[in-house]
Structures are given as structure tokens and as C-alpha cells.
Write a protein that binds this DNA or RNA. Structure first.
Lengths: 377, 377
DNA sequence: CTGAAAGCGCTTACAG
DNA sequence: CTGAAAGCGCTTACAG
């Protein structure tokens, strides 16, 4: 049959073979780069033909005949959520050198869209996927697993059985550390402003918070963790006569909403209100934000998850002995990053710039006696 | 030949056909969804078989036989650069409903990595790519074009001939507007702190700046536009006796570096120093940042670029008459977003929160007589 | 050391 | 209305 849709000049292996005067299979062997022996003279002929034709094998054709796609997927809720780019970069950092093409899918908030993205991943025959969308249902994860795709869940928890590796920061400990830090600053009571508590990460952060504050800790659960959505409820919270002197926000974006509200109400942070966030998105280190926060180690979680994923894919190769190891839950320790919003440094509204990193130390400076530190290039 | 690598249970069209008791081609026709007629009873049999086997056609096999990948690529320098996620989201917003799979590649700063990513795109046989990496060489773009891939360049300029569609914000006008705004605030001289001037976008912004300030405008060109890299040189600039009272930063990240330096030096923004950025990344609207900036319309640039790309891909289909339209340069008007850092609102260090959006109005409030406005939920 | 042939999982004229 | 066959661009045992 004649090719009725001549491609745009992309050469095929057949053309290379013809030009080099060898068989397609020989070209393929040449391409395999060391796996098969090809004589130097043949090799040179092929090399020249490839160069002349600017030949680049088709990934699809290779996938099909090799029966593996060399592709992994990453599912995020939204790439514009500042938490994800770091995580994705972490995934890319390990997956790309390992020879995989990365497919990015954003599932948004809609279950329909989630199902679509999962479907797309299956269609693409990705060998593995890192799932990070906070709201993804277990059933979608199960679908991937059932399709023979390796999955590791990053920065979220499965709701039911541990059917896939999970990599998370220690949310409970992080919540505890942050709350304890507020107590150390002299706040005998505090309010946690959090996202929906049906998300495990928020529940765990809340548990840590309560571990430190017990009955003296109030909880305000929001429907959304977006900064703009958080500002309103936060303003309401801070308007009352019995407003809290300390707020732990379950995400940095919520914390920024709280800061917005505080600014609107004329409250000085940290003098009138101490605020600690969670995640350590880069905005927190911006001058005049100086957000003390719990490091969510997003990039590290990305690399750990991707490393795990690649290991699993390798382990599944034919010839590998034994059954795959059972799913594991990997927990990364949380660490508090001290900047000015908690009170460790005089004030947001002075010219002092908070420290950028705080490390895992939990000892804190006394509430009043800290000399300002300056930062900058 | 026996299949020695039995897949993980993914059904094939042959299995579906067998189970439904029809030919593979009939299943394929069923899948084509309306293009071919299939009788209701046959249809039902196939539907049941597909459901039973949880069949999902292989995208790769389809690509290969249809001779089109239904895939587009997006090349960014770095996904963690806050400018890109919005642009990528814009691309996804149009490309996904159009039925394309999106491949994301980050080229970093290295020409080698850029070449690799371009190579990967070619291997994947993407039908088009949106190129945004600021430093990508024309030769890599040419390689894509030569490979028969549609390309539209977004948020950057080709250096030589216009070999591909280009979508950019009006950098010159943006620079002019911003500079003029500083003049309206009473600053008779100002300094532009910019990234490397061999990047066209920076050159154009500088030209706009000079258009407004002429000889009264100084230019400080940095090697990097990262916030942390900008803080040092900015501090040096602001330490001198003859320090500027107004700075135009060529990107928001540079502006944040300038704000950092100002904070370190104890300068009050905007009282001692007015600052305007460029790009309008979301951080600028954070309370206590309140960065006045030029809207780079990143999301819109993404949708425009992607729309253009999809059009071009469609136009290239067999049966479409006429030669493709020549490459075009699409320029999106710039608009200034007024917040507090320019002086439109009293001070960064008060509790006033700047307006979040300013729209395209260029009229500005007089330097002293503006009442604070409050924002927030 | 190299080649012919079968096969990966689909689609698409072409017959009937 | 449905099926048989060829082909998309590769790889991989199998021969020689």
C-alpha cells in the first residue's frame, strides 16, 4: 500500500537502512548501542546515513515493539498551586536521567477530570505515576494499580488500605512542632485555620496541633486553602473581641490569607498576632512576608517518590526474581523554618528580614530578647 | 511467535474482538465513534466486551497507525520559576480540550539540556510545541521546524528571522508605562535593574524605560533575574550616597530582590524608594509585598500561543487547501497593576493592603493625596 | 557479523 | 453492515 500521508520528511529506519546499504535490523542493532555487535565499517555507514537524514527513531514505534513506554506520569491538582512545581521538579530530577519521559496531568478539583487524567495515563501506557492530587479518590489509584501501573502517592494519604507506596512529610509532628513553637512564644491558646478535615494531611496537622494545645486549641476548618478564599474567614476570626493571639495555618497559602486579614484589620504581625504556616513555599521568604512555617520538603518528597517509582518499575522487569516488596509508607521528618511572623524576629513591619532557613532546631529565642538579624545578598 | 512479555493484563483490541465475536476492524470502527456505521446489536456486544475487559486502546498504537501523535510539547526553562506555571496552565487549558496530550520539558539554563529536550520532542513526534525558555537558541527552534513540527514561541523573541509564530507582551510599552508611572510619582530620575540585555525581552523593557527617562535613566544589568541573585547588587546600588529614589525592575523576582535589599538597608518602600516590577506573578499581591508591576499576561499568552498552535496543526492536515499562513508576531498590550510599592498607596509597612488589580488605566494618583484602600475577603 | 521474518496494537482502504 | 489484509516504524529471536 502506498503511503498516502507522506510525513513531513521524518526519516524512517527503512530509509536509513536503504541509504546505508544494510538491513533495518542492522540499523536497529546499531541503535541499541552496544547490545549487539556491529562491525566498524557497517557502523560508519549507518552513522553517516543517520546524520544525513537527521534520523531520530520514533518513540512510539519503539514503545510498541519493546512493550514498554519509558514514560511516567505525574498527577497534580493544579500546577499553579505553588506547592507543586517544586515537587514536580523533584520528580523530574530523578525520572529524566533514568531515561523516562514525563507526562504531566492536572486534575483540578473535579472527580471527572481526575478520572479523565487517569484514563489518559492508562491510554499512554505510562509505566508508573506519582499521584499528588490531594483529593484523588482511592478508586482512581486502584484503577491505575489494576492497569498494571506502578504508583506512588506523594504528599497525600490513601484513605483505605495501603495499596501503593506513600511518601509524606510527618504532618502530625509538623503540626505539633509549630504549635509548640507558638506556646514557647508565650501563647497559651491558639487557633488552627485549616483546609477541609476530610483530607488526611489536614487531619494529621490538626492532631499535632491539638497534641500541643489540647483544649486551648481552637480549630477553624475552611472549604478551600487558597489565599483569597482564606482571607475572608480569617478576617472574621480576627475581628472578634476574643480574637486569638496566635494562628497556625495548615498551609502557607492559608497563612497568607491570614496575613492579608491581619493587614486589613490593622493588626501587627507578630506583635498583635503570631502566624505560622505549613509547606514552606518560596513566597514565605520574601521580605515583608517573613513567614515562619513548617517545611513540607516538597522537592525531597518528589525525588523520594520518583526514586521509589523507578525502583518498582525496574523490579517488575522480567527476570527479576521474587515478588515485589509490599507498599511502604515513607515519612519525612518535619522541620520548622523560623522567620519573623512567629515572633522570633521583631516585626514584619520593621526593616528586618527574617532568616531564610531555620533548620530542624526547635529551641526558640525568647519572645522579647532577640536582636534583629539582617539578611540579603 | 509467542508473546514472551505478557503484559499486565491490559487487553488488546484482538481480545475485545474475540470476546465480542467480531473482527478487530469492527471493534476499531466502533471505537471511531460515529465515523463508521456499526449495527446496534454488534455495538452492544462490543460495548460489553470492552467493559468486561476494561479495554482502553493504546495511544501509541493509534499514533503509529494514524500517523499522528495527538501530542504537543511545552518547553519551559524551569517549572519552579513562578512565571511559567500560569503560562503552562494557559496552554493546557486550550490544548487538553482539543484532545492533545501535553508533554512538559524543562530545559534549565543549559544549551545541552535544551538540545536534549528538543530531541525528546522530536522522538515523541509531538505535533507542535510551545517554546518559552528565555534562552533557547534559534537553531533549536529551527530544528523543530525542520522536523515538521509546528512551533509557537511564547513570551520570548526569535533572534533572527521570524521562523515561527511569536506571542509576547508589549515589553517596550510595558517598560514605558512603568517608567512613566514613576515619573508621574515625581521621580525625575530612576534606575532600571534588569536581567541580561542579550535577552530581547529585557532589551525591549529597557528601551521603554529609556523612552520615558532618557538620560535620566540609569541601567543596571544583572547576570540573573533570580530574587536571591538580585538582592546583592541591589543592595550595592542602594547603599551609595546618590542612590536612586525609584527603581524599575525588569522582572518581579528582581523587584523582590530589590525589596529585600531595601529592607536590609532600612529603606522604607515606597517612601524612600519606589519600586515597580514586571510580570505580575501572584506573589506581588501578597500583603506586605504589594508590588506594583506590569502585567505580563502569562496565562493569556499561554492560551493565545496554544490556540495558534492548534490552528496550525489543523491547517496542516491533508485536504486543507493552500499553503500555511506566514509566521506572525502577536503582541499583547501591557497594563500596569498598581499596588503600594510605587507610592500609589501610602506604605508597605502600614497595614494597608494594595489593590490587587489595577486594570489598564495609566492615570495615577498624585503622590501624596491618596486615601488608603483596604482589600481582603 | 548480518539479514529475513514475525510481531507489537492499532487503522484504513478495499471487498463483499 | 462486516471482515481480511496491509501497513504504521520499530525490535527481537532465529538462522546463517
Amino acid at each position: 500500500m502506498v503511503n498516502r500521508f507522506p510525513t513531513t520528511g521524518r526519516a524512517t529506519i527503512a530509509e536509513v537502512a536503504a541509504r546505508a546499504g544494510v538491513a533495518k535490523s542492522t540499523v536497529s542493532k546499531y541503535l541499541s548501542d552496544g547490545v549487539y555487535y556491529v562491525s566498524p565499517v557497517t557502523r560508519e555507514k549507518i552513522r553517516a546515513a543517520i546524520e544525513y537524514l537527521d534520523y531520530q527513531p520514533s518513540a512510539c514505534a519503539q514503545s510498541l515493539s519493546r512493550r514498554r513506554s519509558n514514560t511516567v506520569g505525574v498527577m497534580v491538582a493544579s500546577i499553579t498551586n505553588p506547592f507543586y512545581p517544586e515537587l514536580v521538579a523533584g520528580v523530574e530530577e530523578v525520572v529524566e536521567p533514568a531515561g523516562y519521559t514525563m507526562l504531566l496531568g492536572s486534575s483540578g478539583q473535579s472527580p471527572q477530570r481526575e478520572a479523565d487524567v487517569v484514563g489518559a495515563m492508562i491510554k499512554q501506557r505510562v509505566e508508573g505515576v506519582v499521584v499528588t492530587s490531594a483529593t484523588l479518590r482511592d478508586r482512581e489509584v486502584a484503577r491505575l494499580v489494576a492497569a498494571g501501573i506502578q504508583v506512588v502517592v506523594a504528599s497525600r494519604e490513601l484513605q483505605g488500605e495501603l495499596i501503593a507506596d506513600t511518601v509524606v512529610v510527618d504532618n502530625r509532628q509538623g503540626g505539633y512542632l509549630a504549635a509548640h513553637h507558638l506556646r514557647d512564644h508565650g501563647h497559651t491558646a491558639a487557633t488552627l485555620v485549616t483546609g477541609p478535615l476530610d483530607i488526611a494531611a489536614f487531619r494529621h496537622r490538626a492532631e499535632g496541633f491539638r497534641g500541643a494545645y489540647g483544649e486551648r486549641g481552637a480549630v477553624l476548618a475552611l472549604a478551600s486553602s487558597e489565599m483569597t478564599e482564606a482571607a475572608g474567614p480569617a478576617a472574621a476570626l480576627l475581628s472578634g473581641r476574643d480574637r486569638p493571639t496566635a494562628v497556625l495555618a495548615a498551609t502557607d497559602t492559608i497563612a497568607l490569607g491570614v496575613l492579608t486579614a491581619a493587614a486589613t484589620l490593622g493588626l501587627d504581625v507578630p506583635r498583635d498576632l503570631a502566624v505560622i504556616g505549613f509547606d514552606n513555599i518560596w513566597v514565605g521568604q520574601v521580605p515583608n512576608v517573613g513567614l515562619t512555617t513548617v517545611d513540607g520538603h516538597s522537592r525531597r518528597i518528589g525525588t523520594l517518590a520518583a526514586g521509589r517509582l523507578v525502583d518498582r518499575i525496574d523490579a517488575r522487569r522480567p527476570g527479576t526474581a521474587g515478588p515485589p516488596p509490599p507498599p511502604e509508607r515513607i515519612v519525612v521528618p518535619a522541620a520548622i523554618v523560623r522567620r519573623s511572623s512567629c515572633g522570633c524576629f521583631p516585626s514584619l513591619t520593621t526593616t528586618t528580614v527574617g532568616r531564610t532557613t531555620g533548620g530542624p532546631r526547635t529551641a526558640v529565642a525568647p519572645r522579647t530578647a532577640v536582636a534583629p538579624r539582617t539578611a540579603g545578598g
